[in-house]
């Protein structure tokens, strides 16, 4: 028995080693660096809270962090709400060829992420699809400027770019539901809507939670989309962090902002999981 679990650990060890080297150690170094101070091209390697006091005293960082969370929250809600009916449709309405539908949904995501984001620049730009379409139809006399380079364009673009990540987990959790449970609910007197509320929805909640996290966490730190379609008003915390490692050249402050972002995101995620847990209890 002992030697058996030893074999198990030795199978796991290369992966663990990679993760310790590439994940645990960098995070430790990140936290350490956040307590150092930038000194031109070098660091002052003594413990200091300066970066954290900077973070809390200059309102711009906290403001942008919360703006990022608000935007990602909106993206998450939009993506999940839009994805749920689609996943429901594939799981319950499509009888044959479910795989075809699933492939159909993932096909648009086979192009480069950058180009998918860029596509929205084509859609929303000053000379873009929407403007030139509306102009040629005579609805507009001048192109609309507010379509691009603002938080809304970032939210729309992200909601589009992450659609597949929301559909798949929700679909899986819906597909797993034993169909006889739905029949049992009908048999016990609930109508279609209440069956959905009392059986389908609670049972698919794990998928909804997974989908929400899978969309929320990466989008909070997204750097590409705000940079391409966000404009100055649409920047997010990822752009601030990037600038600290680029133009602004203040790695320790960048590290501190990263640490604070991570803590905030983790807290939000815990809050979210706690909330859905309570919701689930209430429904049950």
């Amino acid at each position: 028995m002992k030697s058996e679990s030893l074999r198990g650990y030795s199978l796991l060890s290369p992966t663990l080693l990679a993760m310790v080297l590439g994940l645990a150690m960098p995070l430790v170094v990140l936290i350490t660096l956040s307590f150092w101070i930038q000194d031109y091209l070098d660091f002052i390697r003594t413990f200091s809270l300066k970066n954290y006091t900077d973070f809390f005293q200059k309102p711009i960082y906290i403001k942008i962090l919360f703006k990022s969370i608000r935007m990602s929250g909106l993206v998450t809600i939009a993506t999940v709400l839009l994805a749920y009916p689609m996943a429901y449709f594939i799981a319950f309405r499509v009888k044959h060829n479910k795989l075809v539908w699933l492939i159909l949904i993932t096909v648009p995501f086979w192009t480069s992420y950058l180009l998918r984001v860029f596509a929205w620049k084509i859609m929303l730009g000053y000379n873009g699809v929407i403007n030139s379409g509306l102009l040629s139809l005579g609805i507009l006399s001048e192109p609309l400027e507010f379509l691009l380079y603002n938080p809304t364009s970032v939210v729309i673009t992200l909601a589009h770019a992450w659609a597949a990540f929301a559909i798949l987990p929700i679909y899986v959790s819906l597909e797993k539901i034993d169909r006889s449970l739905l029949e049992a609910s009908r048999d016990l007197g609930e109508n279609v809507f209440m069956t959905f509320m009392r059986v389908t929805l609670p049972l698919s909640l794990p998928g909804v939670i997974a989908a929400s996290l899978l969309v929320f966490i990466p989008t909070v730190g997204d750097y590409v989309t705000p940079a391409l379609v966000g404009g100055p008003r649409g920047i997010m915390i990822g752009n601030i962090i990037q600038s600290m490692f680029g133009k602004a050249l203040n790695w320790p402050l960048g590290a501190a902002i990263s640490v604070m972002s991570m803590i905030t995101v983790t807290l939000m995620v815990c809050l979210f999981i706690w909330g859905t847990h309570n919701f689930r209890k209430r429904v049950a």
Binding site: M19, L23, V29, I241, S258, S261
Partner: peptide
Amino acid sequence: FIMIPLVIPEIILAISLLIL
């Protein structure tokens, strides 16, 4: 622990690796 890269914003993974 192995799943952490799934739930960490990529930019943070990127900069911590860069620092290391």
